[in-house]
Computed example of a mutant assay.
Amino acid sequence: MVRSRASWNGVDLSHTAGDGPVAFSADTGPDALLAAYRAGAYPLPAPNDFARTINEVTHEEAVAAGRIWLIGADTGDPYRVSWWSPDPRPVIPVRAVHLSRRLAGRLRRDTWSTSLDRDFEQVVHGCREGRDPQWLTDELVRSLLLLHEAGWAHSVEVWQESTLVGGVFGVRIDSVLSMDSMFRLRSGAGATAVADLADRFAEAGGTVLDAQWDSPHVRSLGSTPLPRERYLGLLAEQRPAPAPLPADPRPARRLAAGAAEAADGQPCKIY
């Protein structure tokens, strides 16, 4: 029995696989993308026909058995895009970002500055450039730009004078901000962008940054594995209208002290 929905509305991912795709859907338009993030999933478009075929051959039995959702199955080729919702989910509590002592020392000496949403498009293209496989498709980039214009997607930029040297971007769902990607042109600039995003998000009432994929790098930034059930609970919480993220330009050196305090303090509770 194939489980399918015309949209992400009503899709429950709590009992889907934690180590593989939870859905297939060709629709990466802005409305579908935002709805998927609300449901707890994020996209991984197939970079080529071979990867698309691997999706179908590997997972068609699970789709037929109803263990993997088909969303908007009558529109386009669903196996072009797989959607993931890992269990556990690696998240970084906004008050517990860790920066290495070496980077903290560099921030105290350098004149880097940070900004919010000053050049979202350039950050997205910085994250896209040179990546193989290429998961940031043209359609996905267009949708992210539209979500940014609507106030859902945000970027942090790290500047060395007037030169962009790093950044991070993601989509905010109330108290959770799901980070899609980061890049750096200078060592430590990507981690600095994450620390700045966490600092601004905390001021706006945010709880966690969702790192999406577990890796040694995100663990070094202070990520902790959160059971998916609790992650989905964070997305579903009814909260007052969220405050906007502060957008003023800021010196990056301020992050050195805050990161040191987070690293040396007590474990941060995730609500």
Rank of each mutant, 00 (worst) to 15 (best):
Q160D: 15
G151Q: 14
G170H: 01
S155M: 05
E157I: 10
V158H: 06
L147V: 06
D180Y: 06
S143P: 00
L147C: 08
I173W: 08
S143I: 07
D174M: 02
L164Q: 14
S178I: 02
V168C: 06
G151A: 13
L146C: 08
V156P: 00
A153K: 03
G166K: 09
Q160T: 12
I173F: 02
W152H: 15
L147I: 14
E161S: 13
V176Y: 05
V156Y: 06
M179V: 14
S143M: 04
M179S: 07
E157C: 01
H154A: 12
L145P: 00
W152P: 00
S175D: 14
Q160R: 14
L144F: 15
S175K: 06
A153S: 12
A153E: 05
S155L: 11
W159L: 14
L145W: 06
H154C: 08
H148Q: 03
V176K: 13
S162V: 13
E157R: 02
S143L: 05
S143K: 03
H148S: 06
G170P: 00
V141Q: 13
L145I: 10
V168F: 13
S143Y: 06
L146R: 08
Q160N: 15
L146F: 04
D174T: 13
G151P: 00
D180Q: 09
G151S: 14
W159G: 03
E149S: 07
E157G: 02
L177N: 05
E157Y: 00
E161F: 05
F169M: 11
R142W: 04
L146H: 09
S155H: 06
D174Q: 15
S181K: 05
E157F: 02
D174V: 03
S175L: 08
S178D: 00
G167N: 04
E157D: 04
V156I: 14
R172H: 11
G170Y: 03
L147D: 05
L144R: 07
S175I: 06
E161C: 12
R172G: 03
W159S: 09
L145V: 10
L144D: 12
R172Y: 07
D174Y: 09
L144E: 11
S181P: 00
S175Q: 15
D180R: 03
G170M: 07
S143A: 13
V141I: 15
V141K: 11
V158T: 03
G170Q: 06
A150P: 02
V168N: 10
L146G: 05
S155G: 13
V168Q: 12
S143T: 08
V158N: 06
W152Y: 11
T163L: 09
S162D: 14
G166M: 13
V156M: 10
E161Q: 14
S181H: 06
S155V: 07
S143D: 08
R142M: 00
D180H: 13
V158F: 00
L146M: 10
E149A: 11
A153D: 08
Q160M: 14
V168E: 09
F169T: 04
S178Y: 02
V158G: 02
V168K: 01
E161N: 14
V141T: 12
L145F: 03
V141P: 02
G166R: 13
H154N: 02
V171R: 04
L145M: 07
A153Y: 01
V141M: 10
S155P: 00
S181Q: 05
R142A: 12
D174W: 02
H154S: 05
V165W: 07
E157M: 03
L144V: 07
R142G: 02
A153H: 03
